[in-house]
Design a protein around this nucleic acid. Structure first.
Lengths: 118, 118
DNA sequence: CCTATATATATCAGCGACCGGCATATGTTG
DNA sequence: CAACATATGCCGGTCGCTGATATATATAGG
């Protein structure tokens, strides 16, 4: 089992599955929406990540279906995945808060161009 | 210039530099504190990252000093690094909020062992 | 009818950040 | 004098992500 912190694509994948099961292509669109168009998940990342996460037990294949003649695999967040996502968001929230606190509390050390006002 | 999202060690590095300049070893301890002991930055990660971030212009070497006969390099967050950190925390805050919203709003689709109550 | 686009899944070479180990050097503590 | 904390640095390996490529079906447009 890998304890390394999640990278953003993985985090977004779990997030996109947090409310209800979705299939691969749907996840790409959902992540596009969540990130307001900033993250366009590549299929290479997606299907590789889905396999990996399934093997780690964080997600699982809920069902396979055919819609309009096209095959789909629907993935669902497993309990372990829910726990990991909850822990990860909790941790990230603390880091984000700390970063913002420090950005606000920065010292006069901050870089200042020569000739800047005293 | 790389537009890829920051990984957590890098994010913590910039965060640790956000309030005031620090030297390498001090950053390890600071990050240990920020993360409440959960992240122990390795020197391999640290010095490689410092070089990389300096080359990207996100941080810079503020000064070099000798304290108690031990040489130090003191790094400071550059303006570009400040901007990147601010943008990154902003983005992460949105993702975290979305993840928590979804975790709370999850459907009955949630995995449920056979025989669980109706 | 043919082509382009959207839907949908999958594989693979390569890159780059991170990990873990090792090396080096000085000051302090037992 | 050994162990530990302080302090910087290199390097091989791992692994998630990128970008390209391939396959297949449904729909819309020329």
């Amino acid at each position: 089992m890998n304890e390394r912190p999640l990278q953003e694509p993985t985090l977004l994948l779990l997030t996109a599955l947090a409310d209800e099961p979705r299939h691969g292509y749907g996840l790409i669109q959902e992540i596009d929406a969540i990130s307001q168009g900033r993250v366009r998940m590549r299929t290479g990342t997606l299907y590789g990540a889905l396999d990996r996460l399934a093997q780690q037990g964080l997600i699982r294949v809920e069902r396979e279906e055919v819609v309009d003649g096209r095959a789909r695999k629907v993935y669902a967040l497993a309990e372990a995945g829910r726990d990991v996502l909850a822990a990860e968001t909790e941790r990230l929230r603390a880091v984000v808060a700390e970063a913002e606190r420090r950005l606000a509390a920065r010292r006069a050390h901050a870089i200042r161009p020569k000739g800047a006002l005293a």
